[in-house]
Nucleic acid binder design. Structure first.
Lengths: 120, 120
DNA sequence: TGCCCTACCCACCAAAAGGTAACTATTAGA
DNA sequence: TCTAATAGTTACCTTTTGGTGGGTAGGGCA
């Protein structure tokens, strides 16, 4: 396999938390362990396919852990790994900065809404 | 215009610094004002088109400022706005976390290289 | 028997993001 | 007159990302 090359640290970070869904998923898992259906309810805009696909990728990066309960109907829980917890501070700041950005744009007259300002 | 709706703060943040190039550009501008050609040299993988396109979008979001010098050949400088500076801490952490991530993956046996560990 | 539940997989399609290459303007200077 | 220099645009194409709608497993229960 050819050596993977990065030019600057942030490239690697963005490869892991970038894209439309990963940071949102991680922000939810930051507060609690959640099962698949709970995540789907917390992120109503995401499709089944994207949810599991993104969770798989986060699992492969050792950011989230997947716990399968052997029962029927199935029960699967996701949580941050210890390593994933090292992103917690960053995720919090990303949430807060975004909330402020939305306030700012609203103050500037933009039609804009933030449904959940639940970040602790 | 229909009201733009976000479900969680991080969505707004990612809309601004997400994508393949924006966070890289911002990490460079965090340390210094740079002209277009300097940015292009600092980010050799980026194309002309992407560089100006992403800079325009960052300008529209009031994150970077564009200073045009009236001379020939043209000279244009980019820098973070005061508001853009509010991202500086986050950008730094994204760089550092990525550097650690690369170290971690290298320690785990992955063929991986980081060319510039120049974040201050 | 037949249907429910949950998680998740697949095939297929649409849209967004990004890449390439060729072109512009303008003036100094050979 | 011709070229170099810088920043930028445009048309066209490829790749990546995301969405839809279908299907699976397998035990519980009416």
């Amino acid at each position: 396999m050819p050596t993977k090359t990065y030019h600057i640290g942030v490239e690697a970070t963005m490869e892991i938390i970038g894209g439309k869904w990963k940071s949102i998923i991680l922000c939810h898992l930051r507060h609690q362990t959640m099962r698949t259906s709970e995540l789907a309810r917390a992120i109503p805009q995401i499709s089944q396919k994207m949810l599991t696909q993104q969770l798989r990728e986060l699992e492969n990066a050792d950011i989230v852990a997947r716990h399968v309960y052997k029962q029927v109907p199935p029960k699967v829980e996701y949580s941050l790994t210890d390593y994933g917890e090292s992103l917690s501070g960053i995720l919090h700041e990303l949430c807060v900065w975004g909330e402020n950005n939305i306030d700012r744009r609203e103050a500037a007259g933009e039609e804009i809404t933030l449904l959940n300002r639940d970040d602790v």
